[in-house]
Design a protein around this nucleic acid. Structure first.
Length: 478
RNA sequence: GCCAACGUAGCUCAGCGGUAGAGCAAUCGUUUCAUAAGCGAUCGAUCACAGGUUCGAAUCCUGUCGUUGGUACCA
């Protein structure tokens, strides 16, 4: 692999992102930072952003009596602030309302249409005016909407443009079967294969609201949000604007997304790309959801926490650490502030922070001078098998366990060699032990870079030499 | 209802056919360079439950229960 293009899901702007979204952003950021080290900074592109069109956004804006474009900007800005608080190192924060995006969406629409995959049709469905949404017959209870049982369900016909999704049924099934790496974890691929068997054409335009990108040559219709949103992955790397950038980075190496929108990424997106004659992304990584204290994160439960709230209390690196160390990215995980605190004290304060303190103080007390502190060749260190294989299979918790194993080992070694006694005896062995300890600390710092960028930087600075001095604790005990 | 994943010590997870593992928490001991930190030891699991296959099953098969996801136009 010579380049790495990774994307997060773009978050829908009906509300600011919470810790659940942060989980995905942090994982993506760790991968981006890891590949920047191993492939070089210029060979990685990291895209994230906000998904802003659609009826829900329009409705939410109306409720708050704000112009829709102002409303979505407000949420998008606060999403970006949340990501920044976590030190997410995106190369572009895309908004689907960005002007270059609309151009790309229209271009894709035209390509798909030219390929004969767009046709005008009529969508007929059971419509609830309370929800402003269609229901399938199975969803209805006694032929009534489950949320508005007093209203009558109307059979509404809407003229729409349809995408010939069904045309790509066999292609999709074969593609998923023949490319085992396409959907990760693999049991999600099975889910998609089941669904693909019954794939039908879908309407990709709407006429009952206006907040969207207009259909080319038919301004009465707007493009369906998913058709618009997925295309952001092309816009983000300069599909029309910057051919050089696009050719370098496309196809995407990893799309990371929540399990709730897998279908669109695993089935609709590849069909759209195939129709437009554009190469398909390599891997779709499905992340699980976070629960807090065993409960779903939701407004109605009242347990929504913004990432920045935890960052304020514990620091970005602590939140990043906790969220990836005690979870499994592909599965649902349960988190709590109490467990975060436990991890903070046990691993960051007592483990990493204390080790850094004790080695620094030992160096300071013995007037240790770091000789020939040449730049660490980070990319070499990152080739450590146990570490890199964890990244290859997206096992962030394993990579972190490996680093903490190194921390424990160094602590043990210091206990055994007792450098403070060697200092009293003026033993020549002291220098050797300290040199080894400093070397190990530097290695640990490199391995930490993707996960705890700020902390790694502080450690690298502190141990660069020639003189190494004791500094304020990295993670004061709480 | 149907399809699928998951269910291993209080917690987070590893093991996926050959005498139950790690880290955290708890308890005890020990060191003093360090953030009342470190290190060692102990405690702690009929591997969801019930059958089956096998010389042997946490590991394969069947069923039951529980959790979660999907079951199309919802971001």
């Amino acid at each position: 692999m010579s380049k790495f293009y990774i994307t997060t899901a773009i978050d829908y702007v009906n509300d600011t992102i919470h810790l659940g979204h942060a989980f995905q952003k942090i994982a993506t950021d760790v991968l981006a930072r890891y590949y920047r080290i191993s492939l070089g900074k210029d060979n990685v592109f990291f895209l994230t952003g906000t998904d802003e069109y659609g009826q829900k956004a329009e409705k939410a804006a109306k409720q708050q009596n704000i112009a829709t474009n102002e409303f979505v900007k407000k949420i998008s800005d606060s999403d970006q602030k949340e990501q920044d608080s976590l030190n997410i190192s995106y190369d572009r924060f895309i908004r689907t309302t960005d002007s270059d995006h609309a151009e790309v969406v229209k271009e894709i629409w035209n390509k798909v249409e030219k390929n004969g995959d767009v046709y005008s049709g009529e969508y007929e469905g059971s419509y609830c005016e309370g929800c402003e949404a269609y229901y399938t017959k199975e969803d209805l209870i006694n032929k009534k909407c489950p949320i508005h049982p007093t209203l009558t369900i109307k059979i509404i016909k809407e003229k729409n443009y349809f995408f010939k999704w069904s045309k790509y049924k066999d292609f999709l099934i074969n593609y998923i079967r023949n490319n085992q790496d396409f959907i990760f974890p693999t049991h999600r691929a099975k889910e998609m294969l089941e669904f693909a068997k019954n794939i039908k054409d879908i309407p990709i335009s709407r006429s009952n609201f206006t907040w969207g990108i207009p259909v080319p040559n038919d301004p009465k219709q707007v493009i369906y949000v998913w058709f618009d949103a997925l295309v952001n992955y092309l816009t983000g790397v300069g599909f029309l604007k910057d051919k050089k950038l696009f050719n370098k980075f496309w196809p995407a190496d990893v799309h990371i997304l929540g399990k709730d929108n897998l279908r669109w990424h695993a089935l609709l997106w590849p069909a759209m790309l195939k129709s437009a004659n554009i190469e398909l992304p390599k891997t779709i990584l499905v992340n699980g959801f976070l629960n807090i204290n065993g409960q779903k994160i939701s407004k109605s439960v009242g347990n929504v926490i913004r990432p920045s709230e935890w960052v304020k209390k514990y620091g970005a690196d602590a939140v990043r650490y906790y969220l990836l160390r005690y979870t499994n990215i592909t599965e649902d995980s349960d988190i709590s502030e109490e467990k975060l605190l436990q991890a903070y004290n046990a691993d960051l304060a007592n483990g990493l922070g204390n080790l850094v303190s004790r080695v620094a103080k030992l160096c300071e007390n013995s007037n240790y001078v770091q000789m020939g502190s040449e730049e660490r060749t980070s990319s070499h260190l990152i080739d450590i098998e146990e570490y890199s294989s964890a990244f290859a299979s997206f096992k962030f918790n394993d990579a972190l366990s490996f680093i903490w194993g190194n921390i424990t080992e160094l602590d043990k070694l210091i206990n055994e060699e007792k450098p403070w006694e060697l200092a009293k005896q003026n033993s020549p062995k002291l220098r050797t032990i300290l040199a080894h300890a400093v070397d190990q600390i530097q290695e640990i710092a490199v391995l930490l870079e993707p996960f705890l960028p700020k902390t790694a930087e502080k450690i690298e600075e502190q141990f660069r030499g020639p003189k190494i001095t004791s500094q304020k604790p990295l993670f004061p005990r709480i």
